[in-house]
């Protein structure tokens, strides 16, 4: 006996699992994921400020974590997330202003976000290394 059509479990639109990932969709979910991740970094910023207000000992504990290998990796990830979300956010603001909706412009701005977030992350670490005395 066949069930009524309405009883069947039909796949729901938009069927994300059968789509080949595209630049547009990856950047879209990427902006959301980095935004959620950056919320955790905002908590870290508050912890850092509270530690600085609490005194040298509390600050030293937080500083020790930031200086550890885990802390450095977390900070590197946060730097990339920040620039990615920043560039993606500016792309969204340009769209909100009514510009850049042609397919060509959307792909150009998309690759610009990818390139800029990688370049800005690299620039930050190069400048950081030079300021720390590792550079020329």
């Amino acid at each position: 006996m066949t069930r009524a059509p309405s009883d069947r479990q039909r796949p729901l639109s938009p069927n994300i699992q059968i789509y080949r990932p595209q630049l547009t969709s990856v950047l879209s979910i990427g902006n959301r994921i980095t935004g959620i991740a950056l919320s955790a970094y905002a908590v870290a910023l508050v912890i850092w400020l509270v530690a600085a207000a609490a005194g040298p000992d509390a600050y030293a504990a937080v500083d020790a974590f930031i200086g550890s290998w885990v802390g450095r990796i977390v900070l590197f990830g946060g730097t990339f997330c920040l620039f990615f979300h920043f560039c993606g956010g500016i792309r969204h603001l340009v769209w909100d202003a009514g510009y850049g909706f042609s397919l060509r412009a959307i792909y150009a701005s998309g690759w610009a976000v990818v390139a800029a977030s990688i370049a800005l992350t690299a620039l930050t670490y190069v400048v950081g290394a030079i300021l720390a005395g590792y550079g020329p």
Binding site: D63, L82, I90, T124, G128, L131
Partner: peptide
């Protein structure tokens, strides 16, 4: 709020970068 946050984020990033490893 997003527009307000953008320049402030640039300021914080540059400020922290310039003071990394400087101590309490």
């Amino acid at each position: 709020w997003a527009v307000a946050l953008a320049p402030l984020t640039v300021w914080l990033t540059v400020s922290i970068l310039m003071r990394a490893d400087k101590g309490y």
